[in-house]
Nucleic acid binder design. Structure first.
Lengths: 236, 236, 236, 236
DNA sequence: TATGAATGAGTGTTCATTCAT
DNA sequence: TATGAATGAACACTCATTCAT
């Protein structure tokens, strides 16, 4: 599918050979690439934050560079001093987000059948929800991608996979009754987590966080980790 | 915030913009509104199909009216003879899709603990996957909505709710051990189904359909309908 | 009938359509709304002038934004940086024109029966012709309006009324023999002035300005201000 | 000015060699050109009337062929069976209108200083108003023309001139005190009549017809035909 | 380092006119 | 004689990106 035909507008850098930095100014060399002084770092942060806010409000596609620079109280020129493109800003935010995911993945302890396991699961889910709350727009942009920049997509997949693997391991180590194949179970769990959080965040379901986390943790603990085995239709 | 600011281009706000059937050449009065002869119906179908294809390939936003008319081997003018806008085409497809969802919702029989219940669940999931395969792009457009046409969004929510309710009833009637609150359970289940299918369809996970359906059915049967109760961390 | 259905093309009704300052790049926020630096003001002036020229050549409706930007030696983008739409440019020009009208209205002194009065009238008419020459296309756009932007229409009516009132007062104060009712007289006078100038400017009647002004002033002085009363068919 | 660049849309017949009648069907051969049977004449009349109505509602430019055929309860195809283009319909209506003007011009009797002359003038003005009421939209289209079809413009000018000449003659024959030059007087009178009627018809000034006609006749009788000569600023 | 101004390819939509039946 | 369907050039407007200061 998706021959990577992304609609670009105005000067399309892909079509006409990205000219790279033009005059003296190292235009758009993103983040860490250039040494930034205090002021520079401050401006960059302003843009990143503004990006988050605007992406959250409008979604990545609908967000206009102009919205972002206005939110950051800067100018177009400045934007392109720090980011090569709108997508580059997304990428930068995605990197931040990916870091959080990875940390979260690394922090998952064993999920046992008892209360301690439940608590651990609940803690993890709390972290998941927190990250999603903060980076929801970015994550959504990952998923909606559909032919945009492959690199960002990969970043998302990697982060997701990190968590999925961690969860998978925890399931295996307690002999979670995988419904036939482990991949499907984990995929289903991840799918549920992602979309559940999406609904939670965007459609603003008004459930108390504590209650909701309890429900979700219970659901996962029972449904995915320690599903019932007796008295049911037999596995094939 | 974000008062439904979606970037579309080129619509005349004065003459036709304000939604609904208009005047010029009965332009864009969709489907049922105008009486169509055989040829007209054929062309409309061509456009609907082309729309599905193109939305599938590029996603709704990235899809260009030009792509659609090329795929349908017609002209721009013809397109606007049948649909008031690109969004109107989406709406028309959404209506078709909503019908399938509703039918599917109505068809869910009791999900018992035994093999029959499992089979019923599996059958339903099969239908779900099928519909998602056919209308995936539309459903995705629903979800990505983010400030587009509220009407289409509502249509999606309604369809989704229909299924969710049906599933909820089936869960209640067998006393499924809701993880604290029923709403969360159902929401989680729906979330999982939606996103799981999304991944399935878009990222083309290569699992045999039969195997995957088995896994999924098992997972839902156990995890959501007949989750284990004994020997686990107690519900609070 | 005809609820203000004017055919424009290509405006996005969702994002910017609903009139007034918008967001994208502070696009099209006209004149006074944004602070402009020297260069900005220059460009804006260029566009206003080009607009006048093109409207004069083709008329408002037939004028293409493309013609205007070509005449101004700028780009489409730049145009929309200063004006929200073609109509907005018309509005801006209309405001300038309205100012001239208003000033002109304020400047009308007493029109007496003697030479001084005649001269005053002639001076005023000279101003009228001058303004019409400069802003003819705009005035014509006002009149042709027919369901376009009500606001612009009102602006025109206000300006016109200002002059009409001033003339009416001058007529009353010398007891001009209103042909039955004052409103009709003034309306007729204004009608004559407007259309006479229209013909003058557009169809380029080749009369020497001085001669023509003399004729016109004489006509108005006699016909409208000091029409004969004796020996004629009696007023009813 | 006005390089006669009329914006055409779709298949522009001027740009690509008007192909003339295509297959067997004598498409668009207007009115009198073809022998029409009863039904044909009826359809043609329906279209002419619908044209008048729609032009009146929307103005010529804003009127869509579709509006017209819908008003006439016919189809696009039929329209082009009787008229070669939208403009051709205008032309046909213009011919009808020109006939009325010409008849009106021929009917103007001597305008004497006494009551009989006043009555004659009033009668003529009544006819003028009547014609304007019926054909206002057409007349307006004439005036707004600005680079459209020269032929239609000429038709209008001819009709107008016919009346102007007749009036001019009547003025000369009673020695009306032309304000310096006759051409200006007549031009001014015509200008006044046209625009006054325009305002009357379009802006729907609510004056009783009888009263208004009286005022207008009085005004013209006095102002243009028998302007005061004594005690005023001397003619130069 | 920062900024306001400029650019122009790209997009959705319109509507006069022609075609096929 | 009539019609519904089809066409596609034309147009207004957008917005990511670059330029000049």
């Amino acid at each position: 599918m998706s021959e990577s035909n992304k609609p670009t507008r105005g000067r399309d850098p892909n079509r006409r050979g990205r000219r790279g930095p033009v005059n003296g100014q190292a235009t758009g060399t993103p983040a860490s690439q250039r040494e930034l002084r205090a002021q520079g770092r401050r401006t960059m942060r302003k843009l990143l934050d503004a990006g988050m806010r605007v992406f959250a409000e409008r979604g990545y596609h609908a967000a206009r560079v102009d919205d972002i620079v206005r939110a950051a109280r800067t100018s177009h020129g400045t934007f392109y001093l720090y980011f090569a493109s709108k997508e580059d800003l997304l990428r930068a935010l995605a990197v931040e987000c990916a870091q959080e995911w990875t940390d979260l993945a690394a922090s998952i302890g064993p999920i046992t059948r008892d209360d301690a396991g439940f608590e651990e699961l609940r803690r993890f889910l709390g972290g998941f929800v927190g990250t999603y709350r903060r980076y929801g727009p970015i994550i959504r942009a990952w998923m909606e991608d559909q032919g945009g920049d492959r690199e960002i997509g990969r970043l998302g997949v990697r982060s997701f996979t990190a968590i999925a693997s961690a969860l998978g391991e925890r399931m295996d180590e307690v002999g979670a009754p995988h419904a036939v194949d482990s991949a499907t179970s984990v995929a289903a769990l991840m799918a549920m987590l992602e979309r559940f959080n999406y609904v939670l965040v965007s459609r603003r379901i008004d459930v108390d966080d504590d209650v909701m986390l309890d429900s979700l943790a219970r659901l996962v603990h029972r449904g995915f980790f320690f599903g019932a085995e007796r008295g049911m239709a037999a596995s094939r």
